[in-house]
């Protein structure tokens, strides 16, 4: 089942990359997709099949523009700090607990953190995320990071949990 799903995905990527519907190309695509799926058969991908549910898919589609808005905002913030003559940074690594349990959910959360406001996921140990931030608030930096994660967690929970 998993091999089938992976090869289907690999075949779609093949179609996009080759952009050819020539029978020889399609046959090569099927063969290579199957070979790739077989080679990666032992890689645990978590409960990705959740995405077959339309409600979850809907929230995944909502997530994309929300994340993009955060990415743009974070970039303006980081860009401002980079071009500022005095380089106003107060960097450090904070700790934040996540309530997400699923593997894809946590992966998505960690990746989203890295893509947004001056923050970067360094590691996840148990359910504690270590987040490097370019600007830490003076009081309660850990709590501030955790509050920053909350909107992402709410959306991701609707997608994966």
């Amino acid at each position: 089942m998993r091999i089938l799903a992976t090869s289907l995905l690999a075949f779609v990527v093949w179609l996009i990359v080759t952009w050819s519907f020539d029978p020889v190309s399609l046959a090569a695509g099927v063969t290579i997709a199957a070979a790739i799926a077989w080679a990666f058969r032992r890689v645990e991908m978590g409960e990705v099949r959740y995405l077959l549910s339309p409600v979850r898919l809907f929230w995944a589609l909502v997530f994309v523009p929300v994340l993009f808005a955060y990415i743009v905002r974070s970039n303006l913030d980081v860009a401002y700090r980079i071009v500022h003559p005095r380089l106003p940074i107060r960097p450090g690594i904070t700790r934040a607990r996540t309530s997400l349990r699923s593997i894809p959910g946590r992966t998505l959360l960690a990746n989203s953190i890295t893509l947004t406001p001056g923050t970067m996921s360094v590691d996840l140990v148990g359910d504690v995320l270590y987040v490097h931030r370019i600007w830490l608030p003076a009081d309660d930096p850990d709590g501030d990071t955790e509050r920053g994660l909350a909107p992402f967690e709410r959306l991701i929970r609707r997608i994966f949990e």
């Binding site: 960097p91 450090g92 850990d142």
Partner: peptide, 13 residues
């Protein structure tokens, strides 16, 4: 971490 960094929870952990 660079001088001027204010916190390193990861090292503490």
């Amino acid at each position: 971490l660079a001088a001027g960094s204010v916190l390193d929870r990861y090292r503490e952990a």
